[in-house]
Design a protein around this nucleic acid. Structure first.
Lengths: 94, 94
DNA sequence: TGGTTATTTGGTATAATAGCCAAATAATAA
DNA sequence: TTATTATTTGGCTATTATACCAAATAACCA
């Protein structure tokens, strides 16, 4: 049980283990978004969205880029989408 | 943001978001195991292993079958393996 | 420069999770 | 029936995660 690998993998699963963050990833699968777009669609505080984004960023799932006063986020770990899709198929079977 | 779907998906990611549980899933990818086999390899209490297994079971990732006095667990959500593999590739790139 | 907008950071209260121990259950053996 | 083995469950404490508010930063505009 090589600890370091499991620790890093766990960080990725933890980052994804929240409904708001899964929603963010789903949305980013269709293209980049700025922070305010998430705030508009989710009924949570700006600071809360920002913190969720930083969790995903620290895990290496998304990256950010500042353009003007806005910050845009992009999905880099694309295979999350295929797993997410597999889960949906799985849930429909039950 | 259809809440019920995100709630269920989150449950699956939460279930996977622990090093011990990732280890269990990895091991089950190679075939069924009984509880005691995990206890031997992991340095944690029997009750702790049992609780980790029930988290994975409640999420629908593994199933159990009692044979005699032992309980055997099997991996049913196989696509966890491919995602796990993708994460490893991803981590190696960095 | 001063004001406004977009975003992040720090503080804090609350909720969820993890791990151990002890006790309960369940199957089998003596 | 009693004892033994395998596993689960309940209770408790310590740690971690979440969400809000307020304050800080950073870019742009007047």
């Amino acid at each position: 049980m090589s600890n370091d690998l499991y620790r890093k993998k766990t960080q990725i699963f933890k980052a994804l283990a929240h409904p708001t963050r899964l929603f963010i990833v789903d949305k980013l699968a269709d293209g980049e978004c700025c922070v305010c777009e998430f705030v508009n669609e989710l009924d949570v505080d700006f600071s809360t969205v920002s913190k969720h984004l930083s969790v995903l960023k620290n895990a290496g799932i998304i990256i950010d880029e500042k353009r003007g006063q806005q910050v845009f986020y992009r999905l880099v770990m694309r295979c999350v989408c295929s797993f997410s899709h597999c889960i949906e198929t799985f849930l429909n079977k039950e």
